[in-house]
């Protein structure tokens, strides 16, 4: 009994829990910087560790040591809460994603809905965080985040729920199970995969959907005023969100963790996650930034009808 609790605690805190995910997030940041650098004909980080692999950790420690400034105009309480929430929300969401085996750390009927909810809450936090700092660029950035949410939220929810139809369950674990008994969802719903990839780009505020933090217009958007520990947490939270999004896509559409030959499920899962990550980063590198009104118009004109089509097709194929 005691050992079971200890094992569970170890799973939550160390592997595949918080520590592992945080390290994974650092590694993902390094991968993103390296891939972007190579695509753009640069070197990317090279100095800290082998091929600069420790650079994100070094940056994190550097930020921890910096002065933490709270602007006079800021809403003190929310200014403090935002970084903590921004970091802990995606971290918590990870316990719902099956990584080492078919079962996630915790699972229940409807955890997919909870995940959808968490994604929306994060964006809402960005909006409030932008307002809390009182900076004009943050306010504009926060407003843009919220505006963008109006565009990608509906297709995102549709494509998150489409895989649930054949599996007949709103639980991520059941969906992964179904995929291993039948086939990967991407083969039957390729359109959905494309849509969810686009929506996740928007959710993660990556180019071409990075209007909420367009550097040349509004500095860093919502997070302009944050510094020191808060900025370190926000940046880490961002990376965790990036890994979370890739994990979710690979669990929903690419079959999640599965044993292949002698490779353990976690390896296969990580390979899938980094394939999705690579896809998103390459997309980011080959586009210019859309304007916020163009994003919204494009989402409503193309993405939403496509998502609805995918949903109806799935519904018809798998019966009512």
């Amino acid at each position: 009994m005691v050992s079971e609790t200890l094992i569970f605690l170890g799973q939550v805190l160390i592997f595949p829990g918080f520590l592992f995910i945080i390290l994974l997030a650092f590694f993902a940041e390094w991968a993103v910087r390296k891939i972007t650098g190579r695509i753009q004909n640069r070197l990317g980080p090279t100095y800290t560790g082998y091929m600069g692999i420790l650079q994100p950790i070094a940056d994190f420690i550097k930020l921890l040591r910096k002065e933490d400034i709270t602007p006079t105009m800021a809403d003190k309480i929310f200014f403090l809460i935002f970084p903590i929430m921004y970091f802990s929300l995606p971290l918590t969401a990870f316990s719902l994603i099956p990584m080492t085996e078919v079962q996630a750390l915790t699972y229940f009927e409807g955890d997919l809905i909870l995940l959808t909810f968490i994604f929306t809450i994060i964006t809402a936090m960005v909006f409030l965080g932008g307002f809390s700092s009182g900076n004009i660029f943050s306010i504009v950035g926060g407003t843009r985040s919220a505006t963008q949410l109006l565009g990608y939220e509906i297709p995102l929810v549709f494509t998150l729920l489409c895989p649930a139809i054949p599996a007949g369950s709103f639980s991520l674990t059941t969906i992964v199970e179904w995929q291993q008994n039948n086939s990967w969802i991407i083969w039957t719903q390729p359109l959905g995969f494309g849509i969810i990839l686009t929506c996740m780009l928007a959710e993660l505020e990556l180019t071409p959907f990075d209007a909420p933090e367009a550097e040349t217009e509004i500095v860093a958007g919502s997070i302009t005023e944050f510094s020191g520990v808060k900025l370190a947490l926000i940046r880490l939270g961002k990376n965790i969100k990036l890994v979370l999004a890739s994990s979710l896509i690979s669990a929903l559409y690419l079959g999640g963790p599965e044993q292949l030959w002698i490779l353990p499920p976690i390896m296969i899962f990580l390979i899938k996650v980094f394939v999705v990550l690579f896809l998103m980063v390459s997309l980011r590198a080959i586009f210019a930034r859309f304007r916020i009104d163009q994003i919204l118009a494009g989402m409503w004109k193309y993405l939403i009808p496509l998502a609805v089509t995918q949903f109806l097709l799935t519904k018809i194929l798998w019966g009512w």
């Binding site: 695509i39 753009q40 071409p208 930034r289």
Partner: peptide, 9 residues
């Protein structure tokens, strides 16, 4: 316009 790859090239 946020097209950093072109900028680098």
């Amino acid at each position: 316009v946020g097209f950093d790859t072109f900028f680098m090239y």
